[in-house]
């Protein structure tokens, strides 16, 4: 196995171990203990938090910002596809031409979305004000990873650059905002628990109010 592939695998293992540390710390700190009298169904509300509560029609962050929301969904889809491809590449998995070009198209759209989000962050006063270097670095590293995945699908000669970009991403991931890949799920859990305990969620209790 080429050295750059070994390095990327080690980087991934470091990333995985770091995220596992964050995950285990969350588990160790535990779930809320609430002494008030429960009014709703927390299990149903937590399930709703990951499903219906994510419905774009239910969140202003989605329905008031459809272009950004759509770009975000595409961008995250591209990230998941790239991660799966990373392992398939390590296993030397081959693709038919049609699958290969379908993946290239998906990644082209997702990387363009990532770039669009980056441009938006640099162009809008509001977002520049909110942003810190980590926001830009994270966005760029993920977008580059997607782009190199796309390129290496087309031409294997770029494999060293691809694995270097993957390694950098994996090593950086636990340091900054990208660790929301773990904390996002915890946040949805807590939101579901809170709204569920008080009988606000799930959807049966939530009137469509717009």
């Amino acid at each position: 196995m080429a050295l750059y592939r070994i390095v990327s695998l080690i980087a991934f293992l470091i990333c995985f171990a770091s995220l596992a540390y964050h995950f285990l710390r969350l588990i160790r700190f535990g779930v809320p203990k609430d002494y008030s009298v429960k009014k709703g169904n927390t299990a149903a509300a937590i399930a709703y938090s990951y499903t219906g509560g994510m419905n774009p029609l239910k969140k202003e962050s989605a329905y008031l910002h459809y272009p950004t929301y759509t770009a975000g969904i595409l961008y995250h889809t591209g990230t998941f596809v790239s991660l799966v491809l990373f392992f398939l590449f390590l296993l030397n998995t081959g693709f038919s031409s049609s699958v290969q070009w379908a993946l290239v198209c998906v990644l082209a759209v997702s990387a363009a979305s990532g770039l669009g989000i980056f441009i938006k962050r640099t162009a809008l006063n509001k977002l520049r004000y909110l942003s810190n270097p980590d926001d830009y670095v994270s966005n760029l590293l993920v977008t580059l990873f997607q782009l190199f995945t796309l390129i290496v699908l087309i031409d294997g000669a770029f494999a060293p650059y691809y694995y270097i970009s993957a390694s950098v991403l994996f090593l950086y991931l636990p340091l900054g905002k990208l660790k929301h890949s773990i904390y996002f799920f915890a946040a949805r859990y807590h939101l579901g628990f809170f709204y569920g305990w008080r009988g606000i969620w799930p959807a049966g209790n939530e009137e469509r109010t717009r």
Partner: peptide, 22 residues
């Protein structure tokens, strides 16, 4: 930390700014 709630919410914001209009 009484539980994992504080740790969670201090590490979750991605600065998307989409909360502004709410």
């Amino acid at each position: 930390h009484e539980d994992s709630k504080l740790l969670t919410h201090l590490n979750s914001c991605v600065h998307c700014g989409l909360c502004a209009e709410s």
